[in-house]
Amino acid sequence: MVKLRCDGVEMVVAEGTSVAAALLGAGVSRFRSSVTGEPRGPLCGMGVCMECRVTIDGVGHRLACQTPCRAGMEVMTT
């Protein structure tokens, strides 16, 4: 199991879980705000649509659906 935090809330997921799956599984549906402020979350699940962008360990615009969870990861929705 892997422990990470999203917006300060701790979550524990199985090894190999993507950040997108972890967030959705924990009930986070708004990953980012669109340029006009609408809530958005993952769409394509395969790294094409860029809708799942979050900040991971301080680096912005990371694709949650393409990033496996790692222990101690800090994820921020935007």
Binding site: G25, S29, R30, L43, C44, G45, M46, C65
Partner: peptide, 21 residues
């Protein structure tokens, strides 16, 4: 269609395969 909770069909499948319960 842009609301969170609307996914691609293959999109949701991919997310499930990457660990979404």
């Amino acid at each position: 269609w842009t609301a969170p909770g609307v996914f691609g069909a293959g999109g949701l499948q991919a997310l499930v395969k990457s660990g979404l319960p």
